[in-house]
Write a protein that binds this DNA or RNA. Sequence first.
DNA 1: CATGAATGAGATTTCATTCAT
DNA 2: TATGAATGAAATCTCATTCAT
Lengths: 223, 223, 223, 223
Amino acid sequence: MAHQKKIQASGAPDATAGATKRGEDTRERILSAAIEEFCAAGFAGASTTRIVQAANCNIRMLYHFFAKKEGLYRAALERVYEQLRDSEDRISFWQRPPREGVAELTTFTFDYMLENPQFPKMVLQENLAGGDMARELGSLYSRSRPLIANLDGLIENGFADGTFCKRPSATDLYLTILSLSFIHISNLHTLTATFGEDLTEAAFLERRRAHAVEVVLGYLGAD
Amino acid sequence: MAHQKKIQASGAPDATAGATKRGEDTRERILSAAIEEFCAAGFAGASTTRIVQAANCNIRMLYHFFAKKEGLYRAALERVYEQLRDSEDRISFWQRPPREGVAELTTFTFDYMLENPQFPKMVLQENLAGGDMARELGSLYSRSRPLIANLDGLIENGFADGTFCKRPSATDLYLTILSLSFIHISNLHTLTATFGEDLTEAAFLERRRAHAVEVVLGYLGAD
Amino acid sequence: MAHQKKIQASGAPDATAGATKRGEDTRERILSAAIEEFCAAGFAGASTTRIVQAANCNIRMLYHFFAKKEGLYRAALERVYEQLRDSEDRISFWQRPPREGVAELTTFTFDYMLENPQFPKMVLQENLAGGDMARELGSLYSRSRPLIANLDGLIENGFADGTFCKRPSATDLYLTILSLSFIHISNLHTLTATFGEDLTEAAFLERRRAHAVEVVLGYLGAD
Amino acid sequence: MAHQKKIQASGAPDATAGATKRGEDTRERILSAAIEEFCAAGFAGASTTRIVQAANCNIRMLYHFFAKKEGLYRAALERVYEQLRDSEDRISFWQRPPREGVAELTTFTFDYMLENPQFPKMVLQENLAGGDMARELGSLYSRSRPLIANLDGLIENGFADGTFCKRPSATDLYLTILSLSFIHISNLHTLTATFGEDLTEAAFLERRRAHAVEVVLGYLGAD
DNA sequence: CATGAATGAGATTTCATTCAT
DNA sequence: TATGAATGAAATCTCATTCAT
């Protein structure tokens, strides 16, 4: 990316790089404030005014860099998906034995949703808004291919060597993993009110993480 | 529903009863338009103007019946939970053999979310908004007690007679059932874009319903 | 029109009439302020804020009565045409001898543009903006039919009795009359700068009015 | 035009000349985009942003060459008048016999307005805006003197040799010629809507051009 | 000659809500 | 039960213009 070059070149910052760097800074501040706001309020509910207040800059800069509220939203949605896929790239669950690999992917996903609440929030907001932007972002599909391919390989191996006695499609299995990682985040408050139990307590989450792994492996017939 | 009782009871409809009936009608039109709007836009994003336009009545009527936007929202949220619990009351999964009972609850929940999208939508909106209203509605807790108790009984029976080899808490199991019924609704559009697969197709949903049952029973060690 | 009835009924003003009357008042104030503003600045250049300041009311009233800036503009354009046609209806040039009739229509048109500058201004603004609204207003065509028909009759009579030796279409003749009544209004400032002569002076206008009549009658061969 | 001379003179193009040429090019692109924009939107309605987008250059260039929006507007207005007077200089109507001379000036003016719509548009916009800039441009007066003088001579000659039986001032006659050339341009859209006739059709324009000549000569008593 | 960053003011429009009748 | 009139605040977005490089 452009600004990474600048960072590398910042040993001898010239005039141009200085100007650009300042711009990238502001842009980045706006974008990260925007993610917060869109998570909390969705596209329609988000306030550009609040965003620039949080980013500590003039509202005109938002339009300078992103042209429209929609452009900013697109960048925000792209960013949270990018972060998830980048993180996934850093684990190599598919290189491990089938049981362990599936368990690792499950705990990773479970923990990611917990520690990066902007992902489930942005995703839910986008879906509730009708998913128009998701449909336009080709990167959603392309960047998920490696994960699906790797998971598919793992399932094949596990089935071939008799570890698994089921052989679901990778998307089906991933959907199940995702669902078990999502529900206590997406429905946190209503479930808390319904069960009378605090779903953010460490004890609950430990138990639930273990339960998720148990469910997935139990289904695959691997425990 | 409340206003139907009134209609039945109006053995001698006088002017007042007529007025009440018309009023109830308007109230009902506003409430159902409001559910639509809150599903689509959330509390903050919803527009009282749009609601009364859809309900084909004057804005003052909204304030006449519900006092504030918040009052209308509360009524809407209460209504969708009421409908779910009413429907659950109509199945008697807990009276069946353990395997069948769990399977029935799973398919019921799966189908309910599919056929009554206003439930997951309202619930997700409420959660994204912070769940303030859910915390205030005591009915969420009280009306879920029978379900939890009945499911608990079923798990006990299944474990006692050896059908199940796991013995999770009822809330844990219900959470898993709910998650498998929710994810393809809550994340419909982003998943469609991510997988390049249409999650509303009958073929996908059939397969997915079966998968959900398989996962739950597989986990319980009952297949 | 509705508000005329109210005026008649205002001998015994009831509650409903009072409310409506206040509304009509405000509406009328907004509309007449809007005509001023649209004349001076055109549709795009006009400021709704300035309009409501001149009308001495809240900006929300503008949207209450006219929904959009465009709706207000439409009403304003319709109004100025209505006023012209209403005024034309009050002269009966077509009942006079041909020479006098044409002369009367010419001086009437000449004076109308002078005394009602909002007409030429609104019309010019609309044309410069592309005429989108004019195309939508069917009343422009329908309300001009009587004038055209009457002028046509006059030309026929004049030609039949030998007063005129030309027999142009009514639209052609009216266009010429209009052009001679328009140019010193539409191009007032640039012509003043170009000729170094003040085109608003009474002496100039007297001479010019006479010139216009002379040109029209001269062309028809009637002098 | 100024910058074409420079191109021809660049016998030995050095770096500076190249830069100047590029600069003139940009300046010219901005000016011609500005004329378009001012024609369409007037001074107040015009957007400097849109102008530089159409001119395909940075907004700072506009300020580099023209200092303010007003400076650009002045240059645009000056340019369209310059083009008209330059064109008029190329016809020598005053050297012809009176009837023919007047006819030529009429058809020339009629056709010029038709083929160079930026002239009437800019002029009308300037007038609707109050004519402040026209008052400041001394060139309007000075550059119109030759035309007026030449037309005056023609009228004198025609009256002296008995071709004309009227002897209007040159400004009066020119005003009439201009009006007949202007009305179907300035009021194009509203007249089209009013008459239900397309004023841009070749047939209409042919007839109208002939009508204009007929009116002018008819008035002068020369037909 | 050229450009990216930055700004304060003002544009239209929508918001939830209340008053008077 | 029902409605037309009215409001202040805040929404997104565009305006002409300047600074620094």
